[in-house]
Amino acid sequence: MLNDYFNDPIDQATGQNFGVSPQSLMFERLVSNMQSTLDEEVFFDDTDWPDGFAWGSETDAVWEGLAEDAKLLATFRTRKPADKLLCRAAGVIHRAIRSKSPLELEAAQVKLAQIMQSAAPARVYFMLEEAELSLEQMAERAEADEPGSDLGFTPDA
């Protein structure tokens, strides 16, 4: 059975339950995994794990996987306008994960905001808002870091 990450919250927020496309399922999974990763990074660090567990290298691997997922979705071709928006947003997420500075991350946020100006069904807009929240959380983390430090995830991901 397909795992539908946002369908219940979308149904509650918009009153719409929808059939899923491969693009919407991939986008839901991408954003859900981003949210989980960002939350886990807040609650865990190297001191929470026994010797021998490299939390930093584990999170780098997760971010690299997320970047690859976003890149894959960004290259999907579809004729459905709503799915096209999700694919474009995945490209922005890829760009945000690969950002090497807070300025690059901010540029990705601006691009996502532009995408969100497009006409879209409420269910798609809901998913884009969830992505926007994830990018905001990434930006907050970047601002909290000392100047010159990385963003908390691997820019090469």
Rank of each mutant, 00 (worst) to 15 (best):
T75A: 13
F6Q: 07
G52E: 07
M116Y: 03
S99I: 05
V110Y: 02
E143D: 13
G148P: 15
F126N: 07
I10N: 09
D60C: 00
I10V: 15
A54Y: 02
E28S: 12
A74P: 02
S36W: 03
G52W: 09
E136C: 08
R77S: 08
A54K: 03
T37V: 05
V124G: 01
A119F: 02
P50I: 04
F27Q: 07
K71V: 05
R79K: 10
T75H: 10
L2G: 01
M1F: 06
A13N: 11
E129F: 03
G148L: 13
S134K: 06
F44A: 09
P102T: 02
P50D: 13
L66Y: 02
A119W: 00
A70M: 01
L72G: 05
S32E: 10
R88G: 09
Q35F: 06
E28C: 02
L25H: 05
D46W: 02
Q16A: 03
L2Q: 03
G52Y: 10
D60Y: 00
H94G: 10
I97H: 01
K71L: 11
F53T: 10
C87V: 11
S99P: 07
S57L: 09
L128E: 06
C87K: 04
T75R: 14
A61Y: 03
M116L: 08
R88Q: 15
G65L: 03
L30A: 09
D69Y: 02
Q114K: 12
N17C: 03
A131E: 04
C87I: 05
S24L: 12
D11N: 08
E106P: 01
G56F: 08
N7I: 07
I10W: 09
A96Q: 05
S32V: 04
L86V: 09
E58F: 15
V20E: 12
L133Y: 12
Q23D: 10
A61L: 07
L86Y: 11
L73I: 06
E130Q: 13
D150G: 14
A139K: 14
D51H: 07
Q137D: 15
L128G: 12
N17I: 04
M26E: 15
S36F: 07
A89D: 04
A131F: 04
Q109L: 08
S32C: 06
Q114A: 09
A157D: 06
R88E: 15
E129D: 06
R95H: 04
D83R: 03
E146F: 14
E41H: 08
E143A: 15
M26K: 10
G19L: 08
T47D: 14
F53Q: 13
G19F: 05
E58S: 11
D83L: 09
N17S: 12
S101T: 15
L128Q: 09
R95Q: 10
A122W: 02
G91P: 06
E130P: 00
I10L: 08
P9R: 07
W55C: 01
V62H: 04
P81N: 13
T37L: 08
E28I: 01
D48N: 13
D11Y: 06
